[in-house]
């Protein structure tokens, strides 16, 4: 780098700090997360979702043909819907899997490798450890959503195409490119918040175990259980508590005028999950054996 000036010795100095700076920790954590092969594999898979969707629709679908899952039918000849449809599709499994993997590796995986002990002995500080780990998982969540959204927009414009840079809403109105991209960004932000809810819960589970697979099983099992609970009519009163019951709100971004109720309430619900997950994580990490 640039510190090769011969006169000055390498700039490592002894410090009297009792904890390492949080910024350095978080940066190291993010670097570590991004170098991990499985993170990169999952991000690559996520990039394939909009591509596969777009190519499939371009090859087979036309307006009116589609009876595909979710919003897929709305994508044909309407490329800017692709990122939103792809996010909705990925939110059902692949995106939760990605953040759950990151959260599983963050605490349970580190414990399994014996590296958590090193961090506790440094010492990083147990609350700062949670903050640092949360930064890593947050990065994965944001990147995962961005990959789907950006690849989705590009695939939508290039492969699927559409009426000259506009988006046709489900309500039959037409939005210009700027507003269409705004809608995509809205869904991306909303999806990130939903993923953070999953990430917080996954981190909490991760704080209790040293088996990363337990975390993945808990998250995916939880999503399946939520799906089952949501399908039982006599448990309808549970609906407001289930994270997944707000996930149809993503399609609201394709309605015109934009209804914000569903997006807002599902965001609020996700934030409650985030707070509870974070509190449990901190509580458990403060008493966990290293």
């Amino acid at each position: 780098m640039t510190t090769v000036s011969a006169s000055a010795p390498p700039a490592s100095r002894a410090s009297t700090r009792s904890v390492a700076p949080l910024g350095r920790l978080a940066a190291a954590e993010i670097r570590w997360v991004l170098r991990r092969p499985r993170t990169l594999v999952l991000l690559g898979l996520l990039a394939l979702v909009p591509i596969a969707l777009g190519v499939g629709i371009a090859l087979t679908g036309g307006p009116g043909d589609g009876d595909g899952p979710g919003l897929v039918a709305a994508v044909a000849g309407n490329g800017l819907v692709l990122p939103i449809a792809a996010l909705g599709l990925a939110l059902s499994l692949l995106l939760p899997l990605t953040v759950a993997t990151a959260a599983a590796d963050a605490l349970a995986g580190e414990a399994a490798h014996g590296t958590l002990r090193g961090l506790l002995l440094a010492p990083v500080g147990r609350v700062r450890l949670v903050v640092m780990k949360a930064a890593g998982v947050l990065t994965v969540a944001v990147l995962a959503v961005l990959v789907v959204a950006v690849v989705g927009v590009l695939t939508g414009l290039v492969v699927v195409g559409g009426p000259s840079g506009t988006m046709i809403t489900l309500s039959g109105t037409t939005l210009g490119l700027g507003e269409a991209l705004g809608r995509v960004a809205l869904v991306a932000g909303w999806t990130i918040v939903q993923l953070l809810a999953i990430a917080a819960v996954a981190l909490a589970v991760s704080a209790f175990t040293e088996h990363p697979l337990v975390v993945l099983a808990a998250v995916l099992g939880g999503l399946i259980v939520f799906g089952v609970l949501a399908a039982v009519p006599s448990l309808e009163w549970l609906q407001p508590l289930l994270l997944t019951s707000g996930w149809t709100a993503g399609a609201d971004a394709l309605r015109d005028p934009l209804p914000l109720d569903g997006l807002a309430s599902s965001t609020g619900r996700a934030l409650v999950y985030v707070v509870l997950g974070a509190a449990v994580t901190v509580w458990q990490m403060r008493r966990r054996d290293g």
């Binding site: 979710g70 919003l71 489900l170 039959g172 399609a251 209804p259």
Partner: peptide, 8 residues
């Protein structure tokens, strides 16, 4: 609205 569409 329906989950994946809308009638207007």
């Amino acid at each position: 609205p329906s989950p994946d569409g809308e009638r207007t």
